[in-house]
Structures are given as structure tokens and as C-alpha cells.
């Protein structure tokens, strides 16, 4: 599986200089689970949710008078 992928990426791709950047092992698609990525992105998700709730319900809805529509229009023009 992974060897097919490598052929696909062609001769200009990464293999040629992999030695320069300290590769100690080759990991194919099926041998690699990005668990660290999952953890990082879960932390990001949590931050996003908390900040969103804070911004919307505290900063925005708590920010004094707000535009509530044009209920007075009908009366105003009458």
C-alpha cells in the first residue's frame, strides 16, 4: 500500500533528501495514527467552544443596549 503511494509521488518528491532531515524510520499510511494531532485538535475544539460561548453570551449579549428590530415602524409612520 505505502510502496504504491511512494511510487505515485514521483522522483521529485521527498525521498531523495529524507536523509538530510533526520528520518530514522519510514511510516506508511496504515502504520500511522495521528493520535497527537487528534489530541491537539480536541484541545483546539474545546477552546473554540468555550471562547465562542464567552464571546456570545458575555461579551455580546452583555454589551448593553442592542438592536431589537423595527417594532415601532408601524406606529412611527402612522
Amino acid at each position: 500500500m505505502s510502496s504504491a503511494t511512494e511510487r505515485e509521488t514521483g522522483d521529485r518528491a521527498v525521498e531523495s533528501d529524507s536523509g538530510d532531515i533526520g528520518t530514522v524510520r519510514e511510516l506508511g499510511h496504515d502504520e500511522f495514527d495521528p493520535i497527537g494531532t487528534l489530541i491537539l485538535i480536541a484541545i483546539y475544539f474545546a477552546i473554540l467552544v468555550m471562547l465562542w460561548l464567552f464571546m456570545y453570551f458575555v461579551e455580546f449579549l452583555g454589551n448593553g443596549p442592542t438592536v431589537v428590530g423595527s417594532l415601532a415602524t408601524v406606529v412611527g409612520l402612522a
Partner: peptide, 13 residues
């Protein structure tokens, strides 16, 4: 621009 606002509390803006 038309907007309706409720001012509940006194304040200076």
C-alpha cells in the same frame, strides 16, 4: 438605516 433599541437603564454613551 433604521434600528429599534430598548434603553432600560440610564447611562452616558
Amino acid at each position: 438605516s433604521e434600528m429599534t433599541v430598548e434603553f432600560d437603564e440610564p447611562g452616558e454613551y
